[in-house]
């Protein structure tokens, strides 16, 4: 076991938590991520593998399939992002490479992203000040790619009052500031 201590994307040793009115914003460093891209001619086989991993079907366009321990959301045609608990799956990319074999190109994405969980009464109003997403009609288990203040994001809806937001790790502080400002403004 190596002895290098990790930092959260916002720079703390522990995740950052904010509360405005009834909404909580929590930095979540607990995801391991890996992208899965079906190799040419292996699209069906790859989707089947992914379905097996998830205990169901591979996510369709713009959706998110949640399962234990792995979940996945759609990124593009024949391309998905698989997530799993970091503590048990830090080597997610290696695991998936073994599992998918020649059917997919797998790339470690764990630390490319920062993740925030936003939960509470009013998340829709907050999101209306953040991204051009029709959030009122965005169903639970949707995965929408959008932009918040010039930062690319995936907004995943986990419940009517809960969203998970993935964005580039290097601009985590800017995104956090944008989300918090919108919360103070909208709530």
């Amino acid at each position: 076991m190596h002895d290098l201590a990790p930092l959260c994307a916002l720079g703390g040793t522990a995740p950052h938590i904010d509360q405005v009115a009834g909404v909580t914003l929590t930095e979540n460093p607990g995801h391991a991520l890996a992208s899965v891209s079906a190799r040419l001619g292996q699209e069906i086989a790859c989707a089947e593998h992914l379905g097996t991993v998830l205990g169901g079907k591979a996510p369709g366009v713009g959706t998110w399939v949640r399962s234990e321990p792995m979940s996945a959301f759609w990124m593009g045609q024949d391309q998905w992002m698989v997530t799993a608990p970091f503590d048990t799956h830090e080597d997610l990319a290696a695991q998936l490479t073994t599992r998918f074999g020649i059917t997919a190109a797998i790339t470690e994405q764990t630390d490319a992203w920062v993740s925030f969980d936003m939960r509470g009464d009013g998340v829709e109003r907050v999101m209306q000040l953040c991204a051009n997403i029709d959030i009122e009609t965005t169903p639970v288990e949707a995965a929408v790619r959008s932009v918040i203040h010039y930062m690319g994001v995936y907004v995943l809806r986990s419940a009517p009052d809960a969203l998970t937001i993935f964005s580039a790790r290097s601009s985590a502080k800017s995104l956090h500031h944008a989300l918090l400002t919108a919360m103070r403004s909208a709530l």
């Binding site: 990124m75 593009g76 045609q77 391309q79 790619r145 959008s146 932009v147 690319g152």
Partner: peptide, 10 residues
């Protein structure tokens, strides 16, 4: 040609 840069990158 348009590129969906903040989307699915198609």
């Amino acid at each position: 040609l348009w590129y969906h840069e903040q989307g699915d990158r198609s």
